[in-house]
Design a protein around this nucleic acid. Structure first.
Length: 580
DNA sequence: GCCGTTTTCGGCCCGACTGTTTTCAGTCG
């Protein structure tokens, strides 16, 4: 049961019903707070913690949460669902349909679902409604198509491919001086819903907007004003463009990079200093009252202007989630961002021995070429039959080949390793004598993923208790847009990892990025070492490390927190930590 | 519904753009 999802639904229904907007916002804020938690609400409630200590959670919200933890449902939601059909919340996910239109569609046409709406559109019943017309009907029809075509958000890796040529294209436009991507893409959030582009151009707005609309990848133009436009690319990715003059560019870059919550925190600091911070710049309030337009601007050309105006150092966009970065900046305690060269090795990858595309030797050479000091080949164990998992005799054979490759490929150390399956009962899919012969043991779950939460938690912790285990790989099993993380008390697992001195993986693959950034941060808090691994199934996949680095930065990791930022010597010492 | 070294009551961001509404509501970020 997703507590945040229930509260979100309740907020959506209130909005459709037309309740007090600030009450609705209170629900949104509570959802946000809950999503940022590193620990499970259930454990906090059971531990008797006072939830009203959390920002945005008051007495009422705490009662709702208590009820959800205890009963699994929310009586006020059940009651509201009698007044307003709960399926209407699907409608406001559609582009161009908000709460007011959803309500009207329901009241006037009896539409309660996306399917109903599609039918009403086909029967031409929508365009005649007050507030609707031919164009809005057409737009909604397109939204339904997009909704069906691309359920969920875009992976960063997908967007990278789409955005780079668009940036190059815009940079070629004569009047364009600078192009930056803002929004969640700049913050390197694991998935993004759309792209926010900022273009610096003093006077060529029309030319920029014309070129933007004429970009070959555009299938549809949704808006094109004097300074702002929106198009949809063939892939279904929406792109917003804003044209900004030089003296506002930094302020706009900050504003549109978000997150919204971070911006609110910064603006609030500004207000206390008598400053108004907007996408146009930093303005002094006092002079604003005295003089007229323009004179009271105190900065905005550079992003750093915004931070310095409120007495802060520049904050890395990857930290801008209002999860303590403003306070840390003030205290001079921002984490030092991970650098590419901090990574000294890659500890999970596959070879032709199981489901990888390249040989041991090719993987070793590729890692050496990337400047690594060590690597660990972690082919699957026998239980993962679909991936050609190895049986014990094959593992011994592989060790012989590992030895050969060590002789052939100099300048890098190759560890004997395996990605050992965690079986249903928490035992490991490999006999102890094999485990003892490995340099490094990764364990992970690939089966029976829909166990009850308590059972899964117990299963994984039991696996970590095995004395040979070094790293828990892709800890929650999620695949973005495809598979939810399995039910597991991640906080309990991280605490067990801390006690048992087992590292956890931050799987760098852009479709996994498992752990989630807030769990990465929790691991750091608990002193659990994090291994950032690509899980490469080919030589090319080794380059996915950068997605893991970004996710690590979002989780506030510093090089000292990262297992594979250790030198080979340090790492050898760590490996022997359990039997000194 | 939440929050408070300006407040326990009265705030809570607001501007751009579209479409249909002949003067502005709805949506979005």
């Amino acid at each position: 049961m997703e507590i945040a999802a229930v509260l979100r639904e309740f907020g959506d229904l209130l909005e459709i019903k037309g309740s007090n907007p600030f009450r609705i916002r209170a629900y949104r804020n509570a959802v946000r707070t809950i999503n940022d938690l590193t620990r499970s609400l259930a454990s906090m409630v059971e531990g008797g913690e006072d939830l009203t200590e959390l920002p945005g959670i008051g007495k009422e919200m705490a009662n709702h949460i208590g009820e959800l933890v205890e009963w699994g449902e929310l009586s006020v939601l059940e009651a509201l669902g009698q007044e307003v059909p709960r399926s209407l919340t699907d409608l406001i996910r559609l582009d161009g349909v908000g709460p007011k239109k959803a309500k009207r569609l329901w009241e006037e046409l009896g539409v309660t679902s996306v399917d109903d709406l599609e039918q009403a559109l086909e029967e031409d019943r929508v365009a005649g409604l007050a507030g609707f017309g031919a164009k809005s009907a057409e737009k909604i029809f397109r939204s339904i198509e997009d909704f069906r075509k691309h359920q969920g958000r875009f992976l960063l890796s997908e967007v990278d491919v789409l955005v780079r040529p668009l940036i190059r294209y815009l940079e070629e436009v004569g009047v364009v001086e600078r192009v930056e991507v803002a929004g969640s893409y700049r913050r390197r959030k694991e998935t993004v819903g759309d792209i926010d582009l900022l273009v610096l151009s003093e006077d060529g707005h029309e030319q920029v907007m014309d070129s933007f609309q004429a970009y070959p990848g555009v299938v549809r133009v949704e808006a094109a004003g004097g300074s702002k436009g929106r198009v949809v690319l063939r892939s279904g990715l929406p792109v917003d463009l804003r044209i900004v003059p030089r003296d506002s560019f930094g302020a706009a870059l900050h504003y549109f990079s978000g997150s919204k919550e971070h911006n609110v925190a910064i603006r609030t600091l500004g207000v206390k200093k008598g400053l108004k911070i907007s996408e146009y710049g930093v303005f002094s309030e006092s002079e604003a009252e005295a003089g007229d337009s323009g004179d009271n601007k105190v900065g905005g050309a550079e992003e750093a202007d915004v931070f310095s105006a409120v007495g802060l150092p520049w904050i890395n966009p990857l930290l801008r989630e209002n999860r303590g970065e403003v306070e840390a900046a003030r205290a001079g305690e921002l984490p030092e961002a991970l650098k590419t060269q901090d990574i000294r090795g890659d500890l999970q990858m596959h070879s032709t021995w199981s489901d990888g595309a390249n040989t041991l030797r090719e993987m070793a050479e590729a890692c050496r070429d990337r400047g690594y000091e060590y690597l660990s080949i972690t082919d699957h164990s026998q239980a993962v039959t679909v991936a050609g998992g190895l049986k014990p005799p094959q593992v011994r054979e592989q060790w012989e080949q590992v030895e050969e490759v060590r002789q052939l490929v100099g300048g890098i150390h190759l560890f004997r390793s395996l990605e050992v399956d965690i079986l249903k009962d928490g035992s490991l899919d490999m006999p102890d004598e094999i485990l003892a012969g490995l340099d490094l043991v990764l364990v992970s779950v690939h089966s029976f993923m829909n166990m009850p939460i308590a059972e899964m938690t117990k299963r994984v912790i039991r696996a970590l208790e095995h004395p040979q285990v070094d790293i828990l790989a892709h800890p929650t099993g999620r695949i973005l847009n495809r598979r939810e993380p399995f039910a597991m008390d991640v906080d309990a697992v991280l605490q067990a990892a801390a006690e048992l001195d087992v590292a956890v993986e931050l799987n760098a693959h852009p479709s996994r990025l498992d752990l989630h950034d807030r769990h990465v941060r929790r691991a750091k808090e608990l002193g659990v070492k994090v291994a950032i691994n690509t899980d490469a199934h080919s030589v090319q996949d080794l380059d996915l490390m950068r997605y893991g680095l970004d996710q690590g930065r979002r989780g506030w990791l510093e090089s000292g927190d990262v297992l594979n930022a250790m030198s080979l010597g340090e790492f050898q010492v760590w490996k022997d930590r359990k039997n000194p």
